[in-house]
């Protein structure tokens, strides 16, 4: 489930509020808040759309997990999904590397 909206990176663009399919975030005067964490379906799409890599979705779908943000930011987890699918300028060549056609029919 969504665990982190990093106040340092977030620019209050509110894209996550708009794109979350299950309406987990609320706008505020400042950065968005995780208002309904229990509705998060752990689809990782908010991370994908966040242009600042300010969000972190924990892979645990059913339980909240305490997150040490300082330690998290020392890993490459934040933004890792966006980079992997090619939605950053540096990795855009990855948008067309789908090799599913080699896996079908197994």
């Amino acid at each position: 489930m969504i665990e982190v909206v990093d106040g340092e990176r977030c620019t209050s663009c509110d894209i996550c509020v708009n794109v979350c399919p299950t309406n987990v975030f609320d706008k505020t005067d400042g950065i968005p808040v995780i208002a309904r964490q229990g509705d998060c379906q752990t689809c990782f799409l908010c991370e994908l759309y966040c242009p600042e890599d300010a969000l972190y979705v924990s892979p645990f779908a059913d339980q909240a997990q305490p997150i040490d943000i300082v330690a998290l930011k020392q890993t490459d987890s934040m933004g890792s999904y966006r980079r992997a699918v090619g939605w950053t300028d540096e990795t855009s060549d990855r948008r067309s590397v789908d090799r599913s056609y080699l896996l079908f029919g197994h």
């Binding site: 990782f44 892979p59 890792s80 992997a84 699918v85 789908d98 896996l103």
Partner: peptide, 10 residues
């Protein structure tokens, strides 16, 4: 697998 479905590995 990794390049085709990155979210599988998250």
């Amino acid at each position: 697998m990794r390049v085709s479905q990155p979210n599988f590995f998250l």
